[in-house]
Design a protein around this nucleic acid. Sequence first.
DNA 1: GCCATTACTTTGTGTCACTATGTAGTCATG
DNA 2: CATGACTACATAGTGACACAAAGTAATGGC
Lengths: 113, 113
Amino acid sequence: MQSNGVEGNLLRGTLDFLLLASLEHGPLYGLRIIQDVQNRTGGHFNFKEGTLYPALHRLEKRGLIHAEIRPSDVGGPPRKYYHLTDTGLTELERQRDAQRAHAQALRPYLEFA
Amino acid sequence: MQSNGVEGNLLRGTLDFLLLASLEHGPLYGLRIIQDVQNRTGGHFNFKEGTLYPALHRLEKRGLIHAEIRPSDVGGPPRKYYHLTDTGLTELERQRDAQRAHAQALRPYLEFA
DNA sequence: GCCATTACTTTGTGTCACTATGTAGTCATG
DNA sequence: CATGACTACATAGTGACACAAAGTAATGGC
């Protein structure tokens, strides 16, 4: 029942970018990615597992990221560390350009008023 | 089959905002709105009628805009001029805040690199 | 009456974020 | 070696919505 209204749709087309960008500086596993995004956006984006994992699977299926299972080093179930592939890095740059262009195009609507 | 890839999803959650913002400075009819958005974004957004009109109907159903049919002044079929309601103006401000917050939260991912 | 042009409509489709729930691995405690 | 707590990952079902494509209607010029 999507309580968000606007924010849910704003995440669309941005989520993949956020995930790819999170892996830019080294592999991370699922729940850490959520934390990473939360940290870097000052808590603005706080999606749940049901949003994250399907997205990760999509990216993996597209060959943009690749998973490697490692046992947890603090106890608990094993973790799937995702890292960017070469194609993934290219796609990340492409999406960053798209995001910049989008922000740029939107600027006239955001200044003043 | 959505040839866009990224851009289509980026329009999501932004389209309603663009439409409301287009009506901020006076009523416009459908096709003029498309032109207005194209002009103000340097051609970045160029959606078609199949995207526009369902969105307008949604906004109308929510009571954010209101239509008034006027005969064309240059020949051709009559036009439906949409204008913002009071609720629509409030919603526009709300969405502008959301857009600003979104852009702000995304900034760390766009600078450098 | 045609035809082009303008404006609005509609149908069907695929994608995807979201909620909610389920499964499984590890550890501590008794 | 149960049981509970915690962590991590998985998935089913749902609704929203941008999009392409094709259709309808109104006017004016010829």
